[in-house]
Design a protein around this nucleic acid. Structure first.
Lengths: 107, 107
DNA sequence: CTGGATCCCTGAGGATACTG
DNA sequence: CAGTATCCTCAGGGATCCAG
């Protein structure tokens, strides 16, 4: 349970599957659109999500290589929860930052 | 955004506020009911959640000391999303574990 | 273009012992 | 009871270079 929660609560997991909501994306597209992720962590995240059956990895044998990632059925079921969490984070971001400042000030 | 997602996606955050859903809890009660958390991480998690305004920490001056934790309004708004994520994890736990085994087997 | 391999650093996190 | 302090280990994660 803890490891599953670690997986689905991971920020990169949430951001990646959020981007795959309504279209498949290539590696470089994901790298561009998932703000702040390094190449290394994107690779790792994608491998894990593929391993866990949340997305599929399709290699198109061409030059240059073209690899597309798409959500699976299982991945889609996670999408709703993950999206809610991301939305909450976006909504209350400033509020939390302010509270942190206030808290740190009064201590 | 990344730091907020790191906060609300954290496994301990999700489990702790899930336990505070409908009642305030003492430190020792949380330690007992949040499976697998160490005293150290419970303390840290609670401090951070207090700092970020997700829960309140109330010290009752008595012997032995009695400290109670309760969700704030803000914490309650996170509850729904966090609960969904935890429910997803619980529902698909075995499925993911199986997929991992299969994936590791075929490689 | 899509990664894999390597190096390095920091922080997460457990175990244990101690205190008001 | 509710922590704090200390030590130690390991995974997260960036940077860089290399390859098919």
């Amino acid at each position: 349970m803890l490891q599953i929660l670690t997986l689905v609560g991971d920020k990169w997991t949430i951001l990646v599957i959020g981007q795959l909501r309504d279209r498949t994306l290539r590696f470089s597209e994901l790298h561009r659109v998932v703000t702040g992720i390094s190449q290394r962590m994107l690779t790792r995240t994608l491998r894990q999500l593929e391993r866990d059956g949340l997305l599929t990895r399709t290699v198109h044998p061409s030059v240059p290589p073209r690899v597309e990632y798409a959500l699976t059925q299982l991945g889609t079921t996670l999408l709703e929860s993950a999206t809610m969490l991301a939305a909450w984070a976006a909504t209350h971001r400033q509020e939390i930052i302010d509270r942190r400042r206030r808290f740190d000030g009064t201590c």
